[in-house]
Design a protein around this nucleic acid. Structure first.
Lengths: 144, 144
DNA sequence: GTTGCGCCTGCAAGCTATTGCGATAACCTC
DNA sequence: GAGGTTATCGCAATAGCTTGCAGGCGCAAC
């Protein structure tokens, strides 16, 4: 998969250029997030990485995800499952509508938040960092 | 404090009318949330309640907060401190802008989200339940 | 290839929050 | 006021995530 390999290279270049070390743990964690087509949990990343590198510790997974998150290489979403999920951030960001009744998850484009972002900047001089958002409520199939 | 006593009565009426039992634990937890002028954490509620009723368990606090949350009597906010905070829900809902650099917390009115709510309802038929929201970013005093 | 600095990791303890289960007590009926 | 039903509670175990610390390893300089 060419696109994936290219993305991986770019991401590790970002790390190297910023002076971060390219450890096997970091590469594997990054690869796991990139290989996941949807949103992946820390535990899932952990077991994938451990398949190739049994000594890794779960805390390393969390620390690396934190690092990647800070560099905007991955985004984090809380869909209200009691665990956070991660997503590689090369595609356009998107948000989630989570139905409180049936659990359905609807992805919506980030453009939806542009008016809100503009208002916050204009009225509050607040530069909102809206990457991944989960909005809870009731979906079309679950009437009130 | 008349207003507070009145609110407490109303809240316990809601519980009773819905068939929930009015236990001293619940009353004390409710009172603690109501007595807090700002947002209160589960641990703070726990120690306040325990001062009057030493046998209470922290799990009861969480379970009660969950119940009250479901009944829209309290709202829950995650301000990114690693612990969730609670707030009595009789006043108009509001949201928070949290500065990722200096930690400042700015309260904003819920009206700000009305356009977004309308869009979600119109385009996705999704009835968003936006009570308490935290938006992270950079405040006016922390330039980029 | 070797050396050395210090970033990074593994380990273990700790924190917030949740859950299963048996015991208790709130509420209804009489 | 007494008794029965069952919602609720306390306890302890557990899950998800974080943190302090000591030792290991990536990387650059030689």
């Amino acid at each position: 998969m060419k696109g994936r390999a290219k993305r991986a290279k770019e991401a590790s270049d970002v790390l190297r250029e910023l002076g971060y070390r390219l450890t096997p743990q970091r590469m594997l964690i990054l690869a796991a997030v990139q290989a996941s087509d949807s949103h992946i949990s820390a535990e899932e990343i952990y077991s994938q990485v451990r398949a190739q590198y049994p000594h890794v510790n779960i805390s390393t997974v969390y620390r690396t995800l934190d690092l990647l998150k800070g560099l905007s290489l991955v985004t984090e979403t809380d869909l209200g499952e009691g665990r956070v999920r991660y997503h590689y951030a090369d595609k356009g960001h998107h948000h989630h509508l989570v139905c409180e009744r049936c659990g359905a998850i609807i992805e919506v484009d980030e453009d939806l938040f542009l008016p809100l972002k503009r208002t916050l900047l204009k009225d509050y001089h607040f530069q909102a960092n809206i990457r991944h958002f989960a909005i809870f409520g009731r979906c079309a199939k679950c009437p009130r």
